[in-house]
Design a protein around this nucleic acid. Structure first.
Lengths: 341, 341
DNA sequence: GTACGTCATGAAAAGGCTTTCAGCAAGAGG
DNA sequence: CCTCTTGCTGAAAGCCTTTTCATGACGTAC
């Protein structure tokens, strides 16, 4: 059978072979590759020719083993798939594009176990820095990790690591969103919140309550519905509420995906948005500007955040002082809300 | 100033130190780590204790340098951010979860340059296999890459690499979708297609034409509108068409995102879906089941595809024979289409 | 009691590269 | 003509493992 010959990975000669081929020492070749020192013009040419001929590719692993720098930054997102994190990642990638650093991505899958594994893998592979986009790990564990590798955190504020944490005022933004509804005259406002285990979900819910109590309105526990940040859960929860004939005139969803789910539930019951029910989301996903009607929501400047995060990583790696900027969450007024009749 | 002490990365001793600490040779330690051979119980315990004390972590790089296997598989998607590829990636991650292999992701950004760079980086880092989710590279280049590392391709059929290519019958599916519209009585059907440079876009467009000519209907060039697979482009193109008062009763969008854009353009003009205009998308993104109305579209079983791809990689790596399965694209009938009055 | 196979263990090489250190030639200064 | 720089180049050590090979110790068979 053919095919077993493939065992030998075509791997374009080593620095040794190049040196022999060009009639110089490996040190000289290394110097040419890295531009570490001047080398006579004729040798340089000989070496370059040899590299061509042998299809030489430096072995990054060997280099990293010696220098201790891999020129990679590990990025772990709770979920690469989520449109929200995806946009942050885009920003990170963009900011790293014209630097010698390469991002290496991995998912944490919202699970302590998988996240731990992903972190370990990346550290073993000697990433020069680690960027966590959300995390399910405890503060202690995180501090531990920070001792092993430069660590930058998004969406978590860990005591002791403040300089490398970027968080947003979720609570304040949720308060604003809810208040907007209140100012439009709504009093019975449903809130679809995410899992109690997630910090963002908690904070947004707190903001919702802040707004209500701040305006002297009563809290209605029956209007606080739990979902899992996906469309289906919201559609289901809201349908139950509708079936129970609990009255409400507005919905504040914990994220845009749940807003979409809520929207469909309403549509199924013949309720119009915004005429019968006002709807607000959170995140401003790219798709949310194109829903019917376009969704009023809270914009998280994810792309810029990604860029800022990456730039901070770069600074840290360069040993330069760097502080993470603050980002504002802004309410994007579109067409899914209107004054209560 | 404090802080400069951090230069020394806390790095949990080497196998050498462990050996010294435990009073054995490095070979013995290595054997214990890898379970390569029997080791006396007392030494084993001594070594394990030493590893604990020194917080020993094997250096993967050194290991890879010797064994030639990194236990990673590189995954490059045209765009990690696109909901479509994201779901494929989820499948890949899932299938790799309980194997010793780790995925390492990277984006090609729909650009030959970036894709080339991403491939190089991954190969330099010695991934054991490479999985390309879409590619802008030429057949020749791809064959070249396949010579350097086991290569599996999704969305491309490269002569010579057929065994490792997974493609879907985009053309046939587009034909089906269009025919569905024709069977509902539609005659003037708009097609929003992607960039001419993309194979998928081409094929879907060809399928659309196949359906028309196959049913003996005339082609109307003015109804074929170009977009870029994003919402905005579709909204714009369709708005122009509407402004030009070109009549049509149905729209077949090249993907779901463009369908969303079209949907909004229609909404802006007071056209109802499906009452005034029928709409079909392509991809069946998770969000498309929750649009208003829920979108009729072509489902690509992305998650399963991701899993199949990953399993194939695993087989190839294990040296086992493996063939990529075939996947069917199915038309998901929801509520955005209806018979022409 | 000698010879031999078995088995745990250690020494050393290998893997591909960077970097320190020493060497050597050439030009400058006396 | 000799000494001192200056500057390019090569030898060799080192990074952290795995793996081959050799070495004893030990038990068994003859």
């Amino acid at each position: 059978m053919a095919g077993h010959g493939k065992r030998v990975k075509k791997q374009g000669g080593t620095i040794n072979e190049v040196a022999r081929e060009a009639g110089v020492s490996v040190s000289t070749v290394s110097r040419i590759i890295n531009g570490t020192a001047f080398v006579a013009e004729d040798k340089r040419r000989a070496v370059e020719a040899a590299m061509q001929r042998l299809e030489f590719r430096p072995n990054y692993l060997a280099r990293t083993l010696i220098t201790g720098r891999s020129m990679t930054v590990g990025v772990i997102a709770e979920d690469i798939v989520s449109p929200f994190y995806a946009d942050v990642i885009r920003g990170v990638e963009q900011a790293l594009l014209d630097t010698p650093y390469q991002p290496v991505l991995n998912s944490g899958h919202w699970s302590t176990q998988y996240e731990t594994r992903a972190i370990d893998t990346l550290i073993y592979r000697k990433v020069d820095a680690l960027l966590l986009l959300g995390s399910t790990l405890s503060d202690d564990t995180l501090r531990d990790v920070a001792g092993r590798v430069p660590l930058i955190l998004f969406g978590r504020r860990v005591p002791g690591l403040e300089d490398h944490c970027l968080t947003l005022d979720q609570r304040g933004a949720a308060l604003n969103a809810t208040r907007h509804l209140i100012e439009l005259g709504h009093r019975r406002i449903v809130h679809l919140h995410g899992p109690p285990g997630q910090q963002d979900a908690q904070e947004r819910r707190a903001g919702y309550r802040d707004a209500l109590t701040g305006c002297g309105l009563p809290l209605h526990p029956e209007l606080e519905l739990q979902g899992d940040f996906l469309e289906q859960s919201a559609a289901q929860a809201l349908t139950h509420l509708l079936d129970a004939r609990v009255p409400f005139t507005a919905v504040f969803a914990g994220n845009d995906q749940m807003a979409a789910g809520a929207r469909l539930a309403l549509y199924r019951r013949g309720l119009r948005v915004p005429d019968d029910v006002s709807l607000i989301g959170f995140d401003d996903l790219p798709a949310s500007a194109f829903t019917i009607p376009p969704l009023t929501t809270v914009r998280q400047p994810t792309y810029q955040i990604g860029q800022a995060l990456a730039r901070h990583v770069l600074n840290v790696l360069a040993g330069q002082p760097s502080t993470l900027p603050d980002f504002d969450l802004t309410l994007i007024l579109r067409e899914s809300t209107r004054p209560l009749r």
